[in-house]
Amino acid sequence: MNAQEPALTRQGLSTPEELLTGPQVMARLQLGRFAVYDLLRTRQLASITLGRALRIPAHAFTDCIRTRLEQEAAA
Rank of each mutant, 00 (worst) to 15 (best):
P6Q: 10
P6C: 15
A7I: 12
L8S: 05
L8P: 04
G12P: 00
S14V: 13
E17L: 11
E18Q: 12
L19S: 13
L20P: 04
T21M: 14
T21H: 12
T21I: 12
G22T: 14
P23K: 03
Q24A: 15
V25R: 01
V25Y: 01
V25G: 00
M26V: 00
M26I: 00
A27E: 08
R28P: 02
R28E: 00
L29K: 09
L29D: 04
Q30L: 01
L31I: 04
L31M: 13
L31E: 03
G32N: 08
G32R: 09
R33M: 07
R33C: 10
A35K: 09
V36N: 07
V36I: 05
Y37C: 05
D38Y: 14
D38F: 08
L39D: 05
L40P: 03
L40Y: 12
R41N: 10
T42S: 13
T42N: 13
T42L: 15
Q44W: 09
Q44H: 12
L45E: 00
T49I: 03
T49Y: 03
L50A: 09
A53R: 12
A53G: 11
A53V: 08
R55P: 14
R55N: 08
I56E: 06
I56Q: 11
A58M: 11
H59I: 06
H59C: 08
A60I: 08
F61M: 03
T62H: 15
C64D: 00
C64E: 02
I65W: 11
R68G: 11
L69F: 13
L69Y: 11
